[in-house]
Amino acid sequence: MKRIKSLDDLKKLSKNAKNKFDLREKANDPDKVVQIKVAMATCGIASGAKETMDFLIEELDRQSIKAIVTQTGCMGYCYAEPTIEVTMPNNDPIVFGYVDTKKAKEIVEKYIKKNELVDGILPVNYETIDKQ
């Protein structure tokens, strides 16, 4: 880890970090790397997001599916916690709601392995400032 001593340092790091981010999103190996974000704010954790995340990590590992499971903040869908966002290679991210371990298993078996959608998708209904 290096200290940032100037704005140029930050710009360099930002570029690198962006590449890494892209790598994670658009994956090197488009057939294999799946990216999953679990909404882990207090509300998500209270509804069992931690169990869901642990389960996903273990299950994907057990089945040797290459995936990156990360935590993130509140997605805003408080009525449908725990929520996860799954990004399959070369696909738009899809948000699933009410993901307990049973639902998580279904998502792994159907969506991640067979590209079949499962019931309970939450439509994204906001814009981020990047698109503006």
């Binding site: 940032i4 930050l10 710009k11 790091l13 930002s14 970090a17 962006k18 890494k20 981010f21 974000k37 909404a39 990360t70 935590q71 993130t72 903040g73 509140c74 997605m75 805003g76 966002e85 209904n125 906001y126 814009e127 981020t128 400032i129 990047d130 503006q132």
Partner: peptide, 30 residues
């Protein structure tokens, strides 16, 4: 879909809050 625009929540539910590099990748500290 333009009814919701996320400025204050721009990174909420998008980055890993425990990793500064993800914030930096989103123009953080610029």
């Amino acid at each position: 879909y333009k009814k919701q625009i996320r400025i204050a929540l721009r990174n909420c539910g998008f980055i890993n809050p425990e990793n500064i590099e993800e914030y930096i990748a989103r123009d953080g500290y610029m």
